[in-house]
Design a protein around this nucleic acid. Structure first.
Length: 175
DNA sequence: CCCTGATTCGC
DNA sequence: GCGAATCAGG
């Protein structure tokens, strides 16, 4: 594979969103994470604050205390039941759904911004379009947090959106 | 051992 | 310029 302008642009976008080199490599396909890192350096893109760890730039930042939540509120991101359907279309069993009221995921150092709960009609080019809530109920909304101009998602949801399915399954199996 | 980015160096 | 091998670290 060669570095076409298109692939370079995708690399820049995903790197700016904070995806790891291996995740970007999986998105691009045909390249290793070393290739991605090497290219990042040759492009003189800003590196991560500190090497090591998936939390990278967030490590030094102080994390706000987790907001109060019901004791029985599930801690991790939920997975749709396999039998769930919307109309005639069955949702894939590997679709992960961010918990609507949870603004903090304890298993990760990433700070999850509190959803602005925008309706579809309130979304703009620069708001996160990650769907939240239940599509069958009237609590359905979108994340709505500020996203970069190039991305449909905020930094946190970009991580979920671009995480390879195999990695998600691996992470779920480990949890 | 899993993962992360950084660097080196033969190609 | 490219990226595998390697290093240093969480």
């Amino acid at each position: 594979m060669n570095w076409t302008d298109e692939r370079v642009e995708k690399l820049k976008r995903l790197w700016a969103e904070g995806l790891s080199a291996s995740q970007i490599a999986a998105q691009l396909g045909g390249v290793s994470r070393n290739a991605v890192i090497g290219k990042v350096h040759r492009l003189n893109l800003p590196g991560r604050a500190k090497a090591g760890g998936s939390t990278g730039a967030n490590r030094s930042a102080k994390r706000p205390a987790a907001p109060a939540r019901p004791a029985n509120y599930p801690a991790r991101v939920a997975t749709r039941p396999t039998a769930r359907t919307v109309g005639a279309t069955a949702l894939k069993d590997d679709v992960e759904v961010a918990l609507p009221e949870l603004s903090y995921v304890p298993s990760n150092d990433v700070v999850v911004p509190i959803s602005r709960k925008l309706a579809l009609t309130d979304l703009t080019e620069r708001t996160c379009k990650w769907p939240m809530g239940d599509p069958l109920k009237d609590d359905f909304h979108f994340c709505g947090v500020d996203a970069s101009e190039a991305s449909p998602y905020c930094g946190y949801h970009a991580r979920l959106a671009y995480q390879p399915v195999a990695d998600r399954r691996k992470a779920a199996a480990r949890a």
